[in-house]
Design a protein around this nucleic acid. Sequence first.
DNA 1: GTGTAGTTTGAATCCTACG
DNA 2: GCGTAGGATTCAAACTACA
Lengths: 280, 280
Amino acid sequence: MKRLSKNMEKKKDINKFVNKVFCEDSLKKLKEIPDNSVDLIFADPPYNLQLKNELWRPNQTKVDAVNDEWDKYESFEAYDKFCEKWLKECQRILKETGTIWVIGTYHNIFRIGKIMQDLGFWILNDITWVKTNPMPNFRGVRFTNATETLIWAKKNEQAKGYTFNYQLMKKFNNGKQMRSDWYIPICNGKERIKDKEGKKVHSTQKPEKLLKYVILSSSKEGDIILDPFAGTGTTGAVAKKYGRKWILIEMDKNYCKVIEDRLNSIQDRQEWLAEHQKTI
Amino acid sequence: MKRLSKNMEKKKDINKFVNKVFCEDSLKKLKEIPDNSVDLIFADPPYNLQLKNELWRPNQTKVDAVNDEWDKYESFEAYDKFCEKWLKECQRILKETGTIWVIGTYHNIFRIGKIMQDLGFWILNDITWVKTNPMPNFRGVRFTNATETLIWAKKNEQAKGYTFNYQLMKKFNNGKQMRSDWYIPICNGKERIKDKEGKKVHSTQKPEKLLKYVILSSSKEGDIILDPFAGTGTTGAVAKKYGRKWILIEMDKNYCKVIEDRLNSIQDRQEWLAEHQKTI
DNA sequence: GTGTAGTTTGAATCCTACG
DNA sequence: GCGTAGGATTCAAACTACA
């Protein structure tokens, strides 16, 4: 029997991961994914300081005083290392024609952008998600924090052939070129996933419209989209709705259960199209 | 004769710098300024754009790109070192009650933000300057680059008593809490300073409205405002108009001449108030 | 002076395929 | 690797010219 070609092996390999949710450590799982195999990555990395004990501290020692300067620097350093690792894996698995999106706030986005540039990612845009309904600053000591930042980048400076659906985005913007400021409400109402007690499941669930813009602007139907910090699975949900394939990684078991239910409730794009055609 | 108190000495010292334009190397001059002596810093450092090719508009005309010597750095590393140095000095000379603003685009702002955090600056907000009339993306390969980012930070996490004129900013925003997204046109028209041939003097002159928001939100009348990369002196001009003191540093002699003329043409706040009262 | 049409320009990491 | 030809590509605001 003939040996499979390298290309076939790789193709087979990535297909093992496609349209699945992996309830595992993000970095560990990313390392299993073959080189140059995914078309789009959307990453909403954690920056909660509570995680620094378990996840980011390299020497496993206890971090005590939050106010301690040394500890703060050390925790920045640990966070940087963590981000460098997962971003490096993302760069490795990204196709030459692929692009990556990373979202964050001023707490972490500057560090992430700097690391991405240092790794050789080539920034295409920084997008400002302008929240139409942000939480006000109750004490009146700062400006209302009304934005989050997304960095859109290609694999490296030389990489050619990335997808940008210019005309489609133009349509979304009343026939005018889409700008880097996006006006989108925070996720609320029916879209916001709640548990039995009516409490929100995830503290920072991203609105589907945000992912719609991300996915429709920078991927084609059939493309493989990876989310290493899937949360409640908005990336997967929007990918499925628009006929993209998905690979979701999420460490938290509760979130993973939510993702499975959410994805199951979404009709496959092909079925939807078929049904839609019938009703015409 | 009695020796002047330390406080008096310092006060005398900083007064040597006040309401002056220094045509010198920024870092060198910053080092001469005493510790804890300025109330507000606005910095518009070189962006390190790294433009490589010419850009042509669809109508076959060439874009007049930023091609100034002062924007060229050999590497990210060289740029980082430069920024670390001037930011460190800024932190030293800032009062405990003072704050700093730094503006940039995705080319440099992530590196700057990361360095600021590492130095111990405490970020209060990231402000998005949304340009109402940005240059479009001519090739249709990216989103219109419609924003710049400002980082607003205090000296360190523990620093207390910074100025934030909440009620005034609220007035500017139709009675609602001012948000972190500011809608301001690019500097153009009469405000844009041109030379005898009608060519723009500075490639990146900032609009006065931007500085108005910065200065009125985070300083009091009589405060000392420093700009280490003064350019055409917008910071000084707005400071003078609103009764603040200024310290401007700008290496380029041509720019310095422009600044002197510009500041001389602006009436002193006290005179303006007196005259205004007379005419009532 | 007024209104309208045409021109200019702005911190930009701005293409792709084929020989 | 490089050079070249082909082909797709722009928004808002200020300014100028002219009726």
